[in-house]
Nucleic acid binder design. Sequence first.
DNA 1: TTATTTTGTTATGATATATAACATTTCGGG
DNA 2: CCCGAAATGTTATATATCATAACAAAATAA
Lengths: 177, 177
Amino acid sequence: MARRPQTIPRSAADRAAAEPVARTGNPVDLSPLPDRVGYVLRRAQLAVFKDFNRTCAEYDIRPAQYSVLTVIENNPGLKQIEISTALGIKRTNLVALLDLLEQRGLARREPVPSDRRSYALFLTSKGKAFMDRVHSSVARHEDNVNGALGDKGREQLLHLLNRILDKIGPAPGEDEV
Amino acid sequence: MARRPQTIPRSAADRAAAEPVARTGNPVDLSPLPDRVGYVLRRAQLAVFKDFNRTCAEYDIRPAQYSVLTVIENNPGLKQIEISTALGIKRTNLVALLDLLEQRGLARREPVPSDRRSYALFLTSKGKAFMDRVHSSVARHEDNVNGALGDKGREQLLHLLNRILDKIGPAPGEDEV
DNA sequence: TTATTTTGTTATGATATATAACATTTCGGG
DNA sequence: CCCGAAATGTTATATATCATAACAAAATAA
Protein backbone atom coordinates (compact mmCIF):
# COMPACT_ATOMS: atom_id res chain seq x y z
CA MET A 1 0.00 0.00 0.00
CA ALA A 2 3.05 2.25 0.38
CA ARG A 3 3.40 2.87 -3.30
CA ARG A 4 5.55 5.91 -2.79
CA PRO A 5 7.91 5.11 0.06
CA GLN A 6 10.17 7.63 1.69
CA THR A 7 12.81 7.92 -0.97
CA ILE A 8 13.08 5.91 -4.13
CA PRO A 9 14.85 8.02 -6.71
CA ARG A 10 13.83 6.82 -10.12
CA SER A 11 16.56 5.99 -12.53
CA ALA A 12 17.46 7.90 -15.67
CA ALA A 13 16.49 4.75 -17.52
CA ASP A 14 12.99 5.09 -16.09
CA ARG A 15 12.94 8.69 -17.14
CA ALA A 16 13.66 7.73 -20.74
CA ALA A 17 11.08 4.95 -20.94
CA ALA A 18 7.62 6.03 -22.06
CA GLU A 19 6.76 9.17 -23.98
CA PRO A 20 5.08 12.09 -22.25
CA VAL A 21 1.62 11.93 -23.81
CA ALA A 22 1.52 15.46 -22.39
CA ARG A 23 -2.11 15.75 -21.44
CA THR A 24 -2.21 19.42 -20.66
CA GLY A 25 -5.66 20.85 -19.98
CA ASN A 26 -8.60 18.59 -19.32
CA PRO A 27 -10.08 17.61 -22.66
CA VAL A 28 -10.93 14.31 -21.07
CA ASP A 29 -13.25 12.16 -23.11
CA LEU A 30 -15.97 11.08 -20.72
CA SER A 31 -18.00 9.22 -23.31
CA PRO A 32 -20.21 7.36 -22.93
CA LEU A 33 -20.84 8.53 -19.38
CA PRO A 34 -22.63 11.81 -20.17
CA ASP A 35 -25.20 9.76 -22.07
CA ARG A 36 -25.75 7.33 -19.23
CA VAL A 37 -28.79 8.11 -17.16
CA GLY A 38 -27.26 6.71 -14.00
CA TYR A 39 -24.12 8.81 -14.28
CA VAL A 40 -25.90 12.09 -14.97
CA LEU A 41 -28.54 11.31 -12.38
CA ARG A 42 -25.88 10.78 -9.75
CA ARG A 43 -24.03 13.97 -10.51
CA ALA A 44 -27.22 16.00 -10.56
CA GLN A 45 -28.34 14.48 -7.28
CA LEU A 46 -25.02 15.36 -5.66
CA ALA A 47 -25.28 18.92 -6.95
CA VAL A 48 -28.79 19.30 -5.60
CA PHE A 49 -27.90 17.86 -2.19
CA LYS A 50 -24.88 20.11 -2.04
CA ASP A 51 -27.12 23.08 -2.67
CA PHE A 52 -29.46 21.83 0.04
CA ASN A 53 -26.63 21.57 2.53
CA ARG A 54 -25.31 24.97 1.54
CA THR A 55 -28.69 26.67 1.77
CA CYS A 56 -29.53 25.03 5.10
CA ALA A 57 -26.02 25.19 6.52
CA GLU A 58 -27.05 27.31 9.49
CA TYR A 59 -29.34 24.51 10.70
CA ASP A 60 -26.81 21.72 10.28
CA ILE A 61 -29.36 19.32 8.88
CA ARG A 62 -28.94 16.65 6.27
CA PRO A 63 -31.52 15.82 3.61
CA ALA A 64 -32.24 12.45 5.21
CA GLN A 65 -32.79 14.02 8.61
CA TYR A 66 -35.04 16.62 7.07
CA SER A 67 -37.13 13.97 5.34
CA VAL A 68 -37.60 12.08 8.60
CA LEU A 69 -38.59 15.20 10.48
CA THR A 70 -41.00 16.13 7.71
CA VAL A 71 -42.71 12.76 7.83
CA ILE A 72 -43.02 12.92 11.60
CA GLU A 73 -44.34 16.46 11.35
CA ASN A 74 -47.08 15.45 8.95
CA ASN A 75 -47.80 12.09 10.57
CA PRO A 76 -47.35 12.44 14.31
CA GLY A 77 -47.48 9.13 16.12
CA LEU A 78 -45.96 7.03 13.37
CA LYS A 79 -43.94 3.98 14.32
CA GLN A 80 -40.35 3.61 13.21
CA ILE A 81 -41.16 0.78 10.88
CA GLU A 82 -43.75 2.94 9.14
CA ILE A 83 -41.30 5.77 8.61
CA SER A 84 -38.57 3.52 7.37
CA THR A 85 -40.93 1.80 4.95
CA ALA A 86 -42.34 5.07 3.68
CA LEU A 87 -38.93 6.63 3.12
CA GLY A 88 -37.17 3.51 1.92
CA ILE A 89 -34.77 3.56 4.85
CA LYS A 90 -33.95 0.25 6.47
CA ARG A 91 -35.36 0.16 9.95
CA THR A 92 -31.92 -0.76 11.19
CA ASN A 93 -30.53 2.47 9.81
CA LEU A 94 -33.32 4.63 11.11
CA VAL A 95 -32.28 3.93 14.69
CA ALA A 96 -29.15 6.08 14.71
CA LEU A 97 -30.93 8.75 12.72
CA LEU A 98 -33.64 9.01 15.36
CA ASP A 99 -31.09 8.80 18.15
CA LEU A 100 -29.49 11.92 16.75
CA LEU A 101 -32.76 13.78 16.32
CA GLU A 102 -33.72 12.83 19.85
CA GLN A 103 -30.35 13.96 21.20
CA ARG A 104 -30.83 17.30 19.50
CA GLY A 105 -34.20 17.55 21.18
CA LEU A 106 -36.09 17.75 17.90
CA ALA A 107 -38.05 14.51 18.09
CA ARG A 108 -39.04 12.05 20.77
CA ARG A 109 -39.98 8.41 20.99
CA GLU A 110 -43.07 7.67 23.02
CA PRO A 111 -44.14 4.22 24.18
CA VAL A 112 -47.22 2.85 22.46
CA PRO A 113 -49.46 1.19 25.04
CA SER A 114 -51.17 -0.95 22.45
CA ASP A 115 -47.89 -2.34 21.15
CA ARG A 116 -45.06 -2.39 23.59
CA ARG A 117 -42.53 -3.26 20.89
CA SER A 118 -42.86 0.00 19.07
CA TYR A 119 -42.60 3.71 19.68
CA ALA A 120 -44.75 6.54 18.45
CA LEU A 121 -42.73 9.41 17.10
CA PHE A 122 -43.43 13.08 17.59
CA LEU A 123 -41.73 16.38 17.09
CA THR A 124 -40.91 18.20 20.28
CA SER A 125 -42.02 21.81 20.48
CA LYS A 126 -38.41 22.67 19.79
CA GLY A 127 -38.57 20.38 16.78
CA LYS A 128 -41.69 22.11 15.51
CA ALA A 129 -40.13 25.54 15.85
CA PHE A 130 -37.02 24.20 14.19
CA MET A 131 -38.96 22.89 11.22
CA ASP A 132 -40.84 26.16 10.89
CA ARG A 133 -37.53 27.89 10.40
CA VAL A 134 -35.95 25.20 8.23
CA HIS A 135 -38.88 25.14 5.84
CA SER A 136 -38.09 28.62 4.59
CA SER A 137 -34.48 27.67 3.90
CA VAL A 138 -35.60 24.57 2.08
CA ALA A 139 -37.98 26.74 0.08
CA ARG A 140 -35.03 28.88 -0.96
CA HIS A 141 -33.20 25.72 -1.98
CA GLU A 142 -36.18 24.62 -4.01
CA ASP A 143 -36.24 28.01 -5.67
CA ASN A 144 -32.64 27.51 -6.72
CA VAL A 145 -33.50 24.21 -8.34
CA ASN A 146 -36.69 25.46 -9.89
CA GLY A 147 -34.82 28.43 -11.25
CA ALA A 148 -32.61 26.05 -13.16
CA LEU A 149 -35.51 24.00 -14.45
CA GLY A 150 -38.45 26.32 -14.83
CA ASP A 151 -41.90 25.26 -13.69
CA LYS A 152 -42.48 23.19 -16.78
CA GLY A 153 -39.08 21.54 -16.58
CA ARG A 154 -39.61 20.75 -12.94
CA GLU A 155 -42.89 19.01 -13.66
CA GLN A 156 -41.34 17.08 -16.53
CA LEU A 157 -38.41 16.03 -14.39
CA LEU A 158 -40.59 14.82 -11.54
CA HIS A 159 -42.72 12.90 -13.98
CA LEU A 160 -39.74 11.21 -15.60
CA LEU A 161 -38.16 10.35 -12.28
CA ASN A 162 -41.42 8.83 -11.11
CA ARG A 163 -41.48 6.68 -14.21
CA ILE A 164 -38.10 5.35 -13.16
CA LEU A 165 -39.31 4.74 -9.62
CA ASP A 166 -42.39 2.93 -10.86
CA LYS A 167 -40.68 0.69 -13.35
CA ILE A 168 -37.21 0.13 -11.93
CA GLY A 169 -38.46 -1.29 -8.69
CA PRO A 170 -36.99 -4.17 -6.74
CA ALA A 171 -35.95 -7.20 -8.72
CA PRO A 172 -38.68 -9.70 -9.56
CA GLY A 173 -38.79 -11.76 -6.39
CA GLU A 174 -36.34 -9.75 -4.36
CA ASP A 175 -38.82 -7.70 -2.41
CA GLU A 176 -38.15 -5.14 0.26
CA VAL A 177 -36.49 -5.40 3.61
CA MET B 1 -28.12 4.63 24.10
CA ALA B 2 -29.68 1.55 25.71
CA ARG B 3 -33.19 2.73 25.27
CA ARG B 4 -34.61 -0.71 25.67
CA PRO B 5 -32.66 -2.35 28.48
CA GLN B 6 -32.91 -5.99 29.41
CA THR B 7 -36.26 -5.96 31.13
CA ILE B 8 -38.42 -2.98 31.87
CA PRO B 9 -42.00 -4.19 31.96
CA ARG B 10 -44.26 -1.24 31.36
CA SER B 11 -47.00 -0.67 33.84
CA ALA B 12 -50.70 -1.10 33.26
CA ALA B 13 -50.91 2.62 33.89
CA ASP B 14 -48.67 3.18 30.91
CA ARG B 15 -50.81 0.90 28.89
CA ALA B 16 -53.87 3.03 29.64
CA ALA B 17 -52.22 6.36 28.95
CA ALA B 18 -52.40 7.50 25.34
CA GLU B 19 -54.89 6.34 22.78
CA PRO B 20 -53.90 3.87 20.07
CA VAL B 21 -53.96 6.10 17.00
CA ALA B 22 -54.02 2.70 15.33
CA ARG B 23 -52.03 3.44 12.19
CA THR B 24 -52.66 0.21 10.41
CA GLY B 25 -51.46 0.02 6.80
CA ASN B 26 -49.12 2.61 5.38
CA PRO B 27 -51.18 5.57 4.26
CA VAL B 28 -48.27 7.77 5.29
CA ASP B 29 -48.49 11.33 4.11
CA LEU B 30 -45.13 12.07 2.54
CA SER B 31 -46.03 15.56 1.39
CA PRO B 32 -44.28 17.70 0.45
CA LEU B 33 -41.45 15.28 -0.29
CA PRO B 34 -42.82 13.77 -3.52
CA ASP B 35 -42.85 17.29 -4.96
CA ARG B 36 -39.30 18.06 -3.94
CA VAL B 37 -36.82 17.57 -6.74
CA GLY B 38 -34.03 16.57 -4.37
CA TYR B 39 -36.07 13.85 -2.72
CA VAL B 40 -37.36 12.27 -5.92
CA LEU B 41 -33.96 12.63 -7.55
CA ARG B 42 -32.32 10.77 -4.70
CA ARG B 43 -34.81 7.91 -4.72
CA ALA B 44 -34.59 7.55 -8.48
CA GLN B 45 -30.80 7.59 -8.36
CA LEU B 46 -30.78 4.86 -5.73
CA ALA B 47 -33.18 2.77 -7.80
CA VAL B 48 -31.02 3.15 -10.90
CA PHE B 49 -27.81 2.28 -9.07
CA LYS B 50 -29.50 -0.69 -7.51
CA ASP B 51 -30.46 -1.88 -10.96
CA PHE B 52 -26.88 -1.33 -12.10
CA ASN B 53 -25.53 -3.41 -9.25
CA ARG B 54 -28.09 -6.11 -9.85
CA THR B 55 -27.48 -6.28 -13.57
CA CYS B 56 -23.69 -6.29 -13.16
CA ALA B 57 -23.64 -8.46 -10.05
CA GLU B 58 -21.53 -11.15 -11.66
CA TYR B 59 -18.69 -8.68 -12.16
CA ASP B 60 -18.81 -7.25 -8.65
CA ILE B 61 -18.30 -3.71 -9.83
CA ARG B 62 -19.68 -0.47 -8.46
CA PRO B 63 -20.84 2.44 -10.60
CA ALA B 64 -17.95 4.62 -9.42
CA GLN B 65 -15.42 1.92 -10.28
CA TYR B 66 -17.01 1.47 -13.66
CA SER B 67 -16.83 5.19 -14.37
CA VAL B 68 -13.14 5.29 -13.51
CA LEU B 69 -12.39 2.27 -15.67
CA THR B 70 -14.36 3.80 -18.52
CA VAL B 71 -12.43 7.05 -18.36
CA ILE B 72 -9.11 5.21 -18.31
CA GLU B 73 -10.26 3.04 -21.19
CA ASN B 74 -11.06 6.04 -23.35
CA ASN B 75 -8.16 8.16 -22.17
CA PRO B 76 -5.19 5.90 -21.54
CA GLY B 77 -2.31 7.70 -19.86
CA LEU B 78 -4.40 10.11 -17.81
CA LYS B 79 -3.07 11.28 -14.48
CA GLN B 80 -5.04 10.75 -11.31
CA ILE B 81 -5.73 14.44 -10.89
CA GLU B 82 -7.22 14.55 -14.36
CA ILE B 83 -9.54 11.65 -13.67
CA SER B 84 -10.65 13.00 -10.34
CA THR B 85 -11.34 16.42 -11.83
CA ALA B 86 -13.23 14.98 -14.78
CA LEU B 87 -15.40 12.74 -12.63
CA GLY B 88 -15.82 15.10 -9.71
CA ILE B 89 -14.06 12.73 -7.35
CA LYS B 90 -11.68 14.25 -4.84
CA ARG B 91 -8.16 13.18 -5.66
CA THR B 92 -7.81 12.01 -2.10
CA ASN B 93 -10.69 9.59 -2.58
CA LEU B 94 -9.51 8.31 -5.90
CA VAL B 95 -6.48 6.73 -4.29
CA ALA B 96 -8.29 3.85 -2.59
CA LEU B 97 -10.45 3.38 -5.66
CA LEU B 98 -7.39 2.92 -7.84
CA ASP B 99 -5.69 0.77 -5.22
CA LEU B 100 -8.63 -1.60 -5.51
CA LEU B 101 -8.66 -1.64 -9.29
CA GLU B 102 -4.92 -2.25 -9.27
CA GLN B 103 -5.26 -5.06 -6.74
CA ARG B 104 -7.84 -6.68 -8.97
CA GLY B 105 -5.40 -6.41 -11.82
CA LEU B 106 -7.71 -4.27 -13.93
CA ALA B 107 -5.68 -1.06 -14.04
CA ARG B 108 -2.12 -0.03 -13.43
CA ARG B 109 -0.22 3.10 -12.44
CA GLU B 110 2.83 3.85 -14.52
CA PRO B 111 5.47 6.43 -13.66
CA VAL B 112 5.48 9.51 -15.86
CA PRO B 113 9.07 10.42 -16.71
CA SER B 114 8.16 14.01 -17.44
CA ASP B 115 6.54 14.50 -14.06
CA ARG B 116 7.76 12.30 -11.30
CA ARG B 117 4.93 13.32 -9.00
CA SER B 118 2.23 11.74 -11.07
CA TYR B 119 1.25 8.43 -12.57
CA ALA B 120 -0.19 7.60 -15.95
CA LEU B 121 -3.11 5.23 -15.74
CA PHE B 122 -3.84 2.34 -18.08
CA LEU B 123 -6.08 -0.66 -18.25
CA THR B 124 -4.27 -3.94 -18.08
CA SER B 125 -5.10 -6.45 -20.76
CA LYS B 126 -7.18 -8.17 -18.13
CA GLY B 127 -8.88 -4.85 -17.50
CA LYS B 128 -9.63 -4.41 -21.18
CA ALA B 129 -11.14 -7.87 -21.44
CA PHE B 130 -13.08 -7.20 -18.28
CA MET B 131 -14.53 -3.99 -19.66
CA ASP B 132 -15.46 -5.69 -22.90
CA ARG B 133 -17.61 -8.08 -20.93
CA VAL B 134 -18.98 -5.51 -18.51
CA HIS B 135 -20.10 -3.18 -21.28
CA SER B 136 -22.76 -5.61 -22.39
CA SER B 137 -24.15 -5.90 -18.88
CA VAL B 138 -24.17 -2.14 -18.55
CA ALA B 139 -25.98 -1.99 -21.86
CA ARG B 140 -28.65 -4.28 -20.44
CA HIS B 141 -28.91 -2.00 -17.45
CA GLU B 142 -29.31 1.00 -19.73
CA ASP B 143 -32.02 -0.85 -21.59
CA ASN B 144 -33.89 -1.32 -18.34
CA VAL B 145 -33.76 2.40 -17.66
CA ASN B 146 -34.58 3.38 -21.22
CA GLY B 147 -37.47 0.96 -21.16
CA ALA B 148 -38.93 2.95 -18.30
CA LEU B 149 -38.34 6.29 -19.97
CA GLY B 150 -38.60 5.75 -23.69
CA ASP B 151 -36.11 7.34 -26.04
CA LYS B 152 -37.81 10.69 -25.89
CA GLY B 153 -38.12 10.61 -22.12
CA ARG B 154 -34.48 9.67 -21.80
CA GLU B 155 -33.40 12.65 -23.88
CA GLN B 156 -35.64 14.97 -21.91
CA LEU B 157 -34.33 13.63 -18.63
CA LEU B 158 -30.70 14.04 -19.61
CA HIS B 159 -31.41 17.54 -20.80
CA LEU B 160 -33.13 18.54 -17.57
CA LEU B 161 -30.42 17.00 -15.41
CA ASN B 162 -27.79 18.87 -17.38
CA ARG B 163 -29.64 22.08 -16.73
CA ILE B 164 -29.32 21.35 -13.04
CA LEU B 165 -25.64 20.57 -13.41
CA ASP B 166 -25.01 23.76 -15.34
CA LYS B 167 -26.89 26.10 -13.05
CA ILE B 168 -26.55 24.52 -9.62
CA GLY B 169 -22.79 24.51 -9.67
CA PRO B 170 -20.47 25.21 -6.80
CA ALA B 171 -21.35 28.16 -4.63
CA PRO B 172 -20.24 31.57 -5.88
CA GLY B 173 -16.68 31.71 -4.65
CA GLU B 174 -16.46 28.20 -3.25
CA ASP B 175 -14.77 26.57 -6.18
CA GLU B 176 -13.65 22.99 -6.56
CA VAL B 177 -11.16 20.88 -4.70
C1' DT C 1 -49.84 -23.40 24.79
C1' DT C 2 -46.12 -23.16 21.12
C1' DA C 3 -44.20 -21.59 16.72
C1' DT C 4 -43.81 -17.70 13.82
C1' DT C 5 -43.61 -12.97 12.81
C1' DT C 6 -42.89 -8.18 13.93
C1' DT C 7 -40.37 -4.30 16.02
C1' DG C 8 -36.54 -2.12 17.63
C1' DT C 9 -31.89 -2.73 18.54
C1' DT C 10 -26.74 -3.75 18.24
C1' DA C 11 -22.79 -4.91 15.73
C1' DT C 12 -20.47 -4.78 11.65
C1' DG C 13 -19.04 -3.99 6.93
C1' DA C 14 -18.92 -1.64 2.44
C1' DT C 15 -19.26 2.60 -0.18
C1' DA C 16 -19.00 7.73 -0.77
C1' DT C 17 -17.85 11.96 0.52
C1' DA C 18 -15.10 15.54 2.96
C1' DT C 19 -10.99 18.01 5.24
C1' DA C 20 -6.28 18.41 7.10
C1' DA C 21 -1.63 17.41 6.81
C1' DC C 22 2.45 15.61 4.68
C1' DA C 23 6.58 14.38 1.21
C1' DT C 24 8.00 14.86 -3.22
C1' DT C 25 8.25 17.28 -7.21
C1' DT C 26 7.51 21.07 -10.34
C1' DC C 27 7.33 25.79 -11.44
C1' DG C 28 7.70 30.85 -11.23
C1' DG C 29 9.90 35.12 -9.65
C1' DG C 30 13.76 37.27 -8.27
C1' DC D 1 20.59 29.75 -9.74
C1' DC D 2 17.73 29.77 -5.42
C1' DC D 3 13.55 29.89 -2.95
C1' DG D 4 8.83 30.15 -2.08
C1' DA D 5 4.49 28.67 -4.02
C1' DA D 6 1.81 25.40 -6.30
C1' DA D 7 0.77 20.71 -7.88
C1' DT D 8 0.43 15.65 -7.18
C1' DG D 9 -0.21 11.67 -4.71
C1' DT D 10 -0.67 9.95 -0.31
C1' DT D 11 -2.20 9.02 4.61
C1' DA D 12 -5.25 9.65 8.32
C1' DT D 13 -9.61 10.65 9.76
C1' DA D 14 -14.60 11.85 10.11
C1' DT D 15 -19.17 11.61 8.47
C1' DA D 16 -23.14 9.85 5.90
C1' DT D 17 -25.47 6.06 3.69
C1' DC D 18 -26.65 1.65 2.74
C1' DA D 19 -26.52 -3.31 3.70
C1' DT D 20 -26.71 -7.90 6.36
C1' DA D 21 -26.78 -10.86 10.43
C1' DA D 22 -28.22 -11.71 14.91
C1' DC D 23 -30.70 -10.76 19.05
C1' DA D 24 -34.54 -9.63 22.87
C1' DA D 25 -39.05 -8.51 23.56
C1' DA D 26 -43.54 -8.51 22.20
C1' DA D 27 -47.40 -9.63 19.24
C1' DT D 28 -49.69 -12.93 16.43
C1' DA D 29 -51.08 -17.29 14.42
C1' DA D 30 -51.69 -22.15 14.73
